[in-house]
């Protein structure tokens, strides 16, 4: 499986008694947009939280580009090129767009032990470019994120992931509580990932959205993968059938 950018083997996760992942084995193929679906509590978020370093698996193996890795913190995941965009917790509303883009990865001048003076000029310039690159139209990178609409916030989160050259972008229900127009915009972003050579993982409860922007669909139920097919080889009805 040389084209797998992330491969996961026999992953298990228990939350004090709840067996949330029961041996998940899955390959995320390079450049592919994968749709992850399943009922509430199926284990989708648990799986991606493990990949993004928020939780740790109790058992199983993760390989990134063929190399076995240990993802202990969100930072580890980011360093491996895995960026995650959540429904809510991607942005700090009380901070500006420019500041948000660089949280935890601020460009600095003369840093000592990891603490240094912000290179504000670079932050301003790069944030303008990062936002323009994802075709987001915002007045200024100095606007507070709290002033943006939900869709614009997700746009900034995506711009951030693109700016840091993520190889895999995971979006966990990014379209919840968004208007139809904004949802379409986010779906457009997911579609655009392929052109940029980025692997996408898109989690949604809306089957139509998944079929609209993904190449492959993986369905989970009760902590296991129950279906894994190319979009062209399946249908919404079939996916609904296995859930």
């Amino acid at each position: 499986m040389s084209d797998a950018i992330i491969s996961v083997r026999d992953l298990h996760k228990w939350y004090s008694g709840v067996h949330a992942l029961k041996g998940v084995t899955l390959d995320f193929k390079r450049g592919e947009a994968l749709g992850l679906v399943g009922d509430n509590g199926a284990g989708k978020s648990t799986l991606i939280n493990i990949l993004s370093g928020v939780h740790r698996a109790d058992q199983g193996e993760i390989k990134v580009e063929g190399r076995a890795v240990s993802i202990a913190t969100p930072r580890d995941a980011m360093d491996l090129g895995i960026e995650t965009i959540y429904q809510y917790n991607s942005m700090v509303p009380t901070m500006s767009i420019a500041r948000n883009l660089f949280i935890g990865r601020e460009p600095t001048r003369f840093s000592v032990l990891g603490v240094g003076i912000l290179d504000q000029k670079k932050m301003a310039e790069e944030s303008v470019r990062a936002i323009a690159n994802v075709d987001l139209h915002l007045r200024s990178p100095d606007a507070l994120v709290g002033e943006l609409s939900g869709g614009q916030r997700q746009g900034v989160a995506i711009a951030r992931a693109m700016h840091f050259k993520s190889k895999v972008m995971i979006l966990d229900e990014p379209t919840n509580h968004l208007s139809v127009k904004e949802t379409n915009k986010v779906i457009g972003f997911v579609r655009g990932l392929k052109e940029q050579g980025v692997t996408g993982v898109f989690i949604s409860h809306n089957m139509h959205h998944v079929f609209e922007c993904c190449d492959r669909i993986v369905a989970m139920a009760r902590g296991e993968v129950v279906l894994d097919k190319r979009i062209g080889d399946t249908s919404i009805d079939e996916v609904h059938g296995v859930l």
């Binding site: 928020v54 980011m78 990865r105 603490v115 240094g116 003076i117």
Partner: peptide, 24 residues
Amino acid sequence: SRTNFGNWIKATGGFLPAAAAMGI
């Protein structure tokens, strides 16, 4: 206002889950 550490303080207090998810 001028250091990355200051940014982390504001992010941590502004919205802890986002700060943590960004590796702070």
